[in-house]
Nucleic acid binder design. Structure first.
Length: 925
RNA sequence: GCUCGAAUGGUGGAAUGGUAGACACGAGGGACUUAAAAUCCCUUGGCUUCGCGGCCGUGCGGGUUCGAGUCCCGCUUCGAGCACCA
């Protein structure tokens, strides 16, 4: 029988499903291994050929680990909440759950065709009440916690309340929004509302007035990672800053732990670096500056360059800073307010694009704490309200932004580093010797910058002028979305005071609404829900949670997906612990991967999970880009010129459906049928074929370059798709999808098949394999074992091709060889492997139960090695020795060879270098 | 601007500091065939030579080394991330 991928793949996929071959049990007495894919958002467009790349890689690794004797957890599910389903609901009036479930079904269907070894009994969907119950549960727990900076972990908020009752705010060590000061009596005298507001300053999930990224087109706020260059990542709509009262997660409390944790993770350096940037730790000092003639207000600023205090020639406040109102003098008030108004009407994007230096003098002067000199205080939008204290000391000589400002408004520039020239530009290097830095209080002159920073910090701490401080760029996560299709908050309001629901009452189900749009009064869609109140009639929160809520702890749920008592049971968590291998794209570097680490650390603090990092090893698979094909139409005609001849004409390139192109050759009849406009198209061909041009672009419908995996599976089979996706290139590299090479991989599978089947005759025999065949087999096993561990799958595929070519030449039909070949192939091409395992070899079990061939000293790999022997750098002759000969013996044999005498010619040997397996170098004195 | 990564034939890409270009595609030639498809075989980095062979070659310039695609220093270009973060 000929190789027939349809029969084979259908048969084995059915068998796996019916016999639950990939069902995983908890607590099996085998070492565990947890392989996780980033679960997909089931979009309406379905999977394209880029999506399965990571899934195939993780499936290969999972199957490999199973064969090596591990109990492997390899689950799949759906990140089912999200904006596109809701946008579609708005357009069509269909419930997003309906379209989401349809999309899920399509995804499942597409995934099944590729032959993954998922345990589908563990499937989760984030929009499933049984799942989002635990998302809501975690929120309730965060609401009930604060971050204790001394214990360095989350603690019950009740502890803090007890502390307030006896000591007020004195002596607390809690991560907080603002530095609140109150006594126990003041606390006890507070109204419930005031107490609630005060506690929001400490809770890990809190309601806060914050500057948010507001996207009017999407009608919702967005997190920082959902905004890029002033527009929304999804949709590209403009985003403006707006002060709103929103639920937030105090991610910033975990900044240091999130940073430290990275060192212990087996992630790529670039990804860790991205997270480090996002956390943005900087060590510096907070220094207080007195305002001349005022006792009631001091300016507190943050700087990493404490050494430059002597060079401060002015101060700058962010427009949003509370200081502005306090210190603006009456005569400057009008000008300052006009400036603030002007700034407010600019979006962040406009501010970034313009890059114009603007600002206004407040009329007040600050006093330099080291020199006693009076320096003007300005307000300018180049200072950010959200970072540090929203106020800076300006050192124009050594900061380019301050320099530009000083030049624009003609403020003095005082150089502080020996030999620097600040007449044309600032000197921002952080090294050199200090000058101009001496007063009665402190003398830094002659010190290195590094030492001067330390000396200044010491000085200001001693004198109480400020304190050493670490700042983080990481902001708290804004957790409210004014949308319908997300987890409802388990929060209700009594007289305007938020309360969380009892965890026993969860899940709080998403209510039905008549439309998926905001209400007429501008409230979120949940405002349309009837009876959206608790049993006692209290109104329930109208916002829903953001996309990252459901994906933050999903990996835990797979461990124990049907547990009604806990997100994950203690035993299940102790057994699976955390993810050993996580494969997914880099686009989640500062979103999901950051939130998920935060969320997990919080659960760890609560004692709910046993590991404080969720993902031990992480591999970023590259993006598969589209490869768009072009035809070239001669201007003003319906004649198309082949790519090689296009330069001779005046042509317009036109994108053509990739399905009409094969190996860069156009199906001309298909093209004529494609669109009515092209029905009478004429072609200028090259020897009868029309060659298309190409460009690498994003894979999308509008570029006509989407390749559907279903089509590939239909034509070549899942095994070919799997092998080919791996063969395309290194897993971590982005590359365009190019179907041109797929025939080669398909040919390989056919060759493999034809090695063991001639027509209906099975050629497998019980002959002892020849040493030559064993060498071929063993080389393959060695190579593939190494490659899988290094995720170098493309070279593995090459190794299979070499192996099958050699076995074909050797006419090796030995069952013993085939048996091991099949086991090694099974992770890559499981269907054909099963078929051979079953029909050709005659096993009645599945390959899943086989043993990965362990590396064995009896294996024949490269029995002899040729060494080139060189004298003084020139190769003179070669010797052949056993592969396992020790270096010293190789050296002796090389020097003992008669040919060596000629080159030594009585000279002394200075050194001999033996490179294993390759060259012996003799250096003569 | 800062950080990280990359650069190898016509193409995708191989090479623990040791014969650069594995494997595959494409291209060219050949076999089988009435023909096509399929399959198989040969050639395929450049220059040079009838041929044997020789010379050059991993973005550019230096360096370390008996030996560099690989390590070090300095650039160029491309990609990614962050970005008035004080």
């Amino acid at each position: 029988m000929e190789y027939n991928h349809k029969n084979i793949e259908q048969r084995w996929q059915n068998y796996w499903r019916e016999n639950k071959v990939y069902k995983t049990c908890n607590g099996v007495n085998k070492p565990k291994y947890y392989v996780l894919d980033m679960f997909p958002y089931p979009s309406g467009a379905g999977l394209h050929v880029g999506h399965p790349l990571g899934y195939i890689a993780s499936d290969i690794y999972s199957r490999y680990k199973r064969l090596c004797g591990f109990n492997v957890l390899h689950p799949m599910g759906y990140d089912a909440y999200g904006l596109p389903a809701e946008q579609y609901a708005i357009q069509t009036g269909q419930h997003p759950e309906k379209t989401t479930m349809e999309n899920v079904a399509r995804y499942r269907n597409q995934l099944d065709k590729i032959g993954f070894s998922y345990d589908w009994d563990r499937e989760i969907k984030t929009c499933d009440p049984e799942y989002y119950k635990w998302t809501q549960w975690a929120f309730v727990k965060m609401f009930g916690s604060y971050y204790d900076t001394e214990a360095d972990k989350a603690m019950p908020i009740d502890n803090l309340v007890k502390h307030f009752e006896t000591n007020g705010s004195a002596g607390i060590h809690a991560a907080q929004g603002k530095d609140l000061v109150f006594t126990a009596d003041q606390w006890l005298a507070m109204t419930d509302k005031e107490k609630s507001d005060t506690l929001m300053n400490y809770r890990l999930a809190y309601l806060g007035n914050t500057m948010v990224n507001w996207c009017a087109e999407l009608g919702t706020v967005l997190a920082n990672d959902e905004v890029s260059e002033g527009v929304s990542v999804r949709g590209g709509y403009p985003v403006v800053q707006k002060l709103m009262c929103q639920w937030c997660l105090r991610v910033s409390a975990y900044a240091q732990r999130l940073l430290d944790g990275l060192d212990r993770l087996d992630w790529t350096e670039s990804l860790k670096e991205t997270q480090r940037n996002w956390i943005g730790r900087s060590e510096g000092a907070e220094i207080r500056f007195k305002i001349d003639g005022r006792d009631d207000v001091e300016l507190e600023i943050f700087t990493t360059r404490a050494d430059t205090v002597f060079g401060v020639t002015f101060m700058v406040l962010a427009p949003e800073s509370a200081y502005v109102d306090q210190i603006t003098t009456p005569e400057r008030r009008e000008a300052v307010e006009a400036y603030l108004e002007a700034v407010k009407h600019k979006t962040e994007r406009e501010r970034m694009i313009e890059k114009k230096v603007t600002g206004e003098f407040t009329g007040s002067y600050a006093v330099n704490p080291l020199t006693g000199k009076k320096i003007p205080v300005w307000v300018s939008d180049y200072v950010l309200a959200g970072y540090g204290t929203g106020a800076i000391m300006a050192v124009p000589a050594h900061d380019s932004r301050d320099y530009a400002f000083a030049r624009r408004f003609d403020l003095p520039v005082v150089p502080l580093i020996e030999g620097c020239d600040v007449s044309e530009e600032c000197f921002d290097a952080k090294s050199g010797r200090m000058i101009n830095s001496c007063s009665e209080l402190l003398d830094l002159n002659g010190m290195e910058v590094k030492d001067a920073i330390a000396a200044t910090k010491r000085f200001i701490e001693e004198k109480g002028l400020g304190k050493v401080k670490v700042n983080y760029r990481l902001r708290d996560a804004i957790f409210s979305r004014q949308r319908y299709w997300g987890e409802p908050f388990p929060v209700y309001y009594v007289d305007g005071i938020p309360h969380v629901m009892d965890v026993d009452k969860l899940p709080l189900h998403l209510p039905e609404v008549d439309k998926y749009l905001p209400t007429e009064t501008g409230e979120p869609p949940l405002g349309r829900a009837k009876n959206w109140v608790t049993e006692d009639g209290y109104p329930i929160e109208l916002c829903t949670m953001p996309g990252f809520a459901g994906s933050s702890a999903y990996y835990l749920r797979y461990m124990d997906p049907h547990n009604n008592e806990a997100l994950v049971g203690r035993d299940a968590n102790d057994y699976w612990r955390n993810v050993d291998l996580y494969i997914g794209g880099t686009e989640h570097a500062t979103g999901h991967l950051m939130y998920s680490r935060f969320w997990n650390k919080f659960l760890y603090d609560l004692g709910e999970v046993c590991e404080d990092e969720p993902y031990r090893k992480l591999i970023n698979q590259g993006m598969i880009q589209g490869r768009t094909s072009f035809v070239y139409r001669i201007q003003g005609t319906n004649t198309f010129v082949s790519h090689g001849l296009k330069d001779k004409y005046d042509v317009t390139p036109i994108r053509v459906d990739i399905n009409l192109v094969s190996n860069d050759t156009l199906d001309m009849d298909g093209f004529r049928r494609w669109r009515p406009d092209f029905a009478d198209a004429e072609f200028v061909t090259e020897d009868g074929v029309y060659r298309t041009g190409y460009a690498v672009e994003k894979m999308s419908k509008s570029m006509f370059n989407v390749v559907n995996p279903d089509d590939i599976v239909e034509r070549y089979g899942a095994d070919t798709l799997r092998l080919y996706e791996m063969f395309l290139g290194p897993l971590e590299q982005s590359k365009p999808w190019d179907t041109n090479g797929i025939d080669g991989v398909n040919r390989f599978i056919k060759k493999l098949w034809n090695l063991y089947y001639k027509g209906d005759i099975c050629l497998v025999d019980d002959s002892e394999p020849t040493p030559e065949s064993l060498k071929t087999l063993h080389t393959l096993i060695k190579k593939v074992t190494q490659d899988i561990e290094n995720f170098s799958y493309n070279t593995s595929v090459a190794a299979f091709m070499i192996c099958v070519n050699e076995l074909t030449q050797q006419k090796c039909h030995s069952r013993k060889v085939l048996e091991q070949l099949v086991v090694v192939l099974a992770p890559f091409a499981p269907h054909v492997a099963e078929e051979l395992w079953h029909s050709a070899i005659g096993h009645d079990t599945t390959v899943n139960d086989a043993q990965w061939p362990k590396w064995n000293e009896n294996y024949l790999v490269e029995s002899t090695v040729n060494y080139a022997v060189s004298f003084n750098g020139k190769v003179r002759f070669t010797i052949s020795v056993a592969a396992d000969m020790p270096k010293d013996d190789v050296e002796k044999k090389a020097l003992g060879d008669p040919a060596a005498q000629k080159w030594m010619d009585g000279k002394a040997i200075k050194k001999v270098i033996v490179v294993p397996g390759k060259i012996v170098n003799v250096v003569l004195g």
